[in-house]
């Protein structure tokens, strides 16, 4: 019997679907909604027409998402440096001297946290600036001292002027060795 070719029957035992009806295909609107979640705020046909929307998503939005993911930590770093610089300007102090002195004193609070301290804990930040100023003055750098009414009594010891910790290495051109090609495993004969 050649039923299959003439009737288009699927010979699957215990099939989920009735052999005499078409297998339901997955709903295309689900896929379209998935795309529209990202393109909902685009202009005209890029928002309304699925084909245009998917092109837009592929070539513009996804590239932007990816760029944003990479840029976010860098921007945070940059902006916190700007914030710390501006907070120091309020105390008539320079960023380079401040960071140098903190490095020498082995106070390893990073810029992101320093910016938060400057904004939300101004007294703590002021005390830290006063310490760094005093150190910079003892080193013979040009520093504008605090006004009398807001001056801290800072007492320094010799251990404040230590050697800064070694900075982590940065490889702008990538690692020195090519680790993509892994060395081959030793065979038992070669041990």
């Amino acid at each position: 019997m050649k039923l299959t070719s003439s009737l288009g029957l699927r010979r699957i035992i215990n099939s989920y679907f009735d052999p005499f009806s078409k297998v339901p295909s997955p709903d295309r609107w689900l896929q379209r909604e998935k795309i529209q979640r990202f393109t909902a705020w685009q202009n005209s046909s890029y928002r309304d027409i699925y084909k245009h929307a998917s092109i837009k998503l592929r070539y513009k939005l996804m590239a932007y998402y990816s760029m944003h993911r990479q840029d976010e930590p860098r921007l945070e770093k940059h902006y916190s440096e700007v914030r710390v610089t501006n907070a120091l300007a309020e105390h008539d102090f320079e960023y380079k001297h401040f960071k140098n002195m903190l490095d020498k004193a082995h106070i390893l609070i990073d810029n992101n946290t320093l910016a938060k301290l400057a904004i939300y804990e101004p007294q703590s930040f002021h005390s830290l600036v006063a310490l760094a100023k005093e150190m910079a003055q003892q080193e013979g750098r040009e520093v504008m001292p605090d006004r009398e009414e807001r001056k801290y009594d800072v007492q320094l010891c010799d251990s404040m002027f230590g050697e800064p910790y070694p900075r982590p290495m940065i490889f702008p051109k990538g690692a020195a060795e090519n680790h993509k090609v892994k060395p081959k495993k030793l065979t038992p004969n070669e041990y």
Binding site: H106, Q155, L156, C157, D158, S159, M160, G162, Y165
Partner: peptide
């Protein structure tokens, strides 16, 4: 490497 401060 932590530093030990002195009392002055």
């Amino acid at each position: 490497f932590a530093t030990n401060p002195e009392v002055i």
